[in-house]
Measured scan of single mutants.
Amino acid sequence: DDVELRDGDWRVELKDADEEILRAVEEAIKNGASEQELRELAERLIR
Rank of each mutant, 00 (worst) to 15 (best):
D7H: 04
L22K: 11
E20V: 08
K15W: 09
D9P: 06
D1C: 14
L38A: 14
L5F: 15
S34F: 01
E19H: 10
L14W: 02
I46A: 04
R6A: 12
K30Q: 09
E13K: 15
W10S: 03
R39H: 04
E27C: 09
E27N: 13
E27P: 00
E13N: 15
A28Y: 03
K30G: 04
A33M: 12
E13Q: 08
S34H: 02
K30E: 05
L5N: 12
G8L: 13
A24R: 05
Q36F: 07
L45N: 01
D16C: 05
D7S: 04
A42K: 06
R23Q: 07
R23K: 15
E35M: 09
L5T: 10
E35Y: 07
D7E: 06
E19C: 14
D2N: 15
L14P: 02
E37S: 04
D18F: 08
Q36T: 08
I46M: 14
S34K: 04
L14M: 06
G32S: 02
G32W: 01
E26N: 03
R44D: 09
E19P: 14
A42L: 14
R11H: 02
E19Y: 09
E20G: 13
V25W: 07
R39K: 14
R11W: 14
E4P: 07
L41P: 00
L38W: 15
L41Q: 00
E43H: 11
R11Y: 13
E27W: 10
E13S: 13
A17T: 06
V12W: 13
K15T: 07
K30N: 08
K15P: 01
E20I: 09
L22Y: 04
D18R: 09
L5P: 05
A42W: 14
I21D: 01
G8P: 13
E19F: 08
A33I: 11
L41V: 01
V3S: 12
I29W: 13
V25P: 00
L5W: 14
E26M: 12
R11E: 04
E27D: 08
W10D: 02
I46S: 04
D1S: 14
I29Y: 15
D1K: 10
W10F: 05
R47K: 15
Q36V: 12
G8N: 13
W10C: 12
E26A: 10
E20N: 11
R47H: 15
L5H: 14
L5Y: 10
E26Y: 13
Q36Y: 12
E37Y: 05
G8D: 09
E13A: 11
A28E: 01
V25R: 00
K15S: 07
I29F: 12
V25C: 07
L41K: 00
R47Q: 15
I46V: 07
A28Q: 02
I21Q: 02
L41A: 00
D9G: 07
D2H: 13
K30L: 10
L22S: 03
G32R: 01
A28N: 00
R11V: 06
K30H: 06
E40F: 03
A24S: 07
I29D: 04
L14D: 02
V25L: 13
V3W: 14
A42E: 03
S34A: 03
V25I: 14
E20K: 10
E27I: 10
W10V: 04
I46F: 11
E37Q: 07
Q36D: 11
N31F: 06
E20L: 10
